Simulated assay, not measured.
Amino acid sequence: MASRTPARPRSPHLFSGFLKLHYSWGPHMLVSILHRATGSGMATVGTVLLVWWLAAIASGAEAYATFQDVFTTDAGNLNIVGWVVFVGITYAFFTHMLNGIRHLVMDAGAAFELKRNKMFSLIVIAGGFVLTAAFWLYLGMK
């Protein structure tokens, strides 16, 4: 007769029973995904913008004017595309930075308790919005 082995733990993406997850989503899982997404997003969008900007400068005044027209209005202010791109990059930067600080604290051996980890995760999410808003308000005052 074969002996019964105890049930092995399942991965978070697998179901047990009828649509019952083993793990519930929390803010600590969200910031982990956000950290990867913001890092990749900043690298990709930043590289594309830098290459486009350098190519526009090298190509002459008409190409540079086209580059500027995509992001600004006739008055020199940001248009909707400029706002979405640059505010998005700013939010990605601040969220990625705060999450990096969170990881530094965790690498030092602190904040592994679930309550504290969730609290720091919520601070990362909210802090990204607060720092982005403060940055753009500061730029708007100048």
Rank of each mutant, 00 (worst) to 15 (best):
R116A: 15
T73S: 06
A7T: 09
L114S: 12
F112L: 09
A126V: 14
T132F: 05
A126W: 08
A55V: 08
Y138C: 06
A61I: 10
I123P: 01
L131A: 12
P9W: 02
A133E: 01
L131P: 06
K118P: 00
I57E: 15
F129D: 02
T47V: 12
G26S: 15
G46T: 02
T72Q: 04
G100K: 09
V85H: 07
L104P: 02
H103S: 00
A75I: 00
A63C: 07
L50T: 11
N77P: 05
L30P: 01
N117W: 04
P12Y: 04
L21E: 09
S32M: 10
W136V: 03
G17W: 04
Q68R: 12
H22W: 03
F15I: 13
Y138G: 00
K142E: 11
V51L: 11
H96Y: 08
A134D: 05
A2W: 06
A111S: 11
W136E: 01
R4I: 11
K115A: 12
F129P: 02
M106E: 14
L98M: 04
L114G: 02
M141E: 02
L114Y: 08
A111E: 07
H103A: 07
V105E: 00
L49Y: 09
D107A: 02
M29F: 15
L30K: 06
A65C: 10
S16G: 13
P9R: 00
M29A: 13
A58S: 13
G26Y: 10
F120V: 00
L122I: 11
M106A: 10
D74H: 13
A61S: 15
P9Y: 05
N117Q: 11
G41N: 04
M97N: 04
G140Q: 13
P9A: 11
L137D: 07
W25T: 13
G76N: 09
V105M: 05
S11N: 07
R10P: 01
R10H: 13
M42N: 06
W53F: 12
A65G: 13
T72W: 05
K115H: 07
L54P: 03
K118C: 05
S121N: 04
I123V: 15
T5L: 10
T132M: 14
A58K: 11
S16A: 13
A63M: 10
Q68H: 04
F129R: 02
T38Q: 02
R102V: 03
G100C: 06
F93E: 05
F15D: 14
F71C: 12
I80Q: 09
F129W: 10
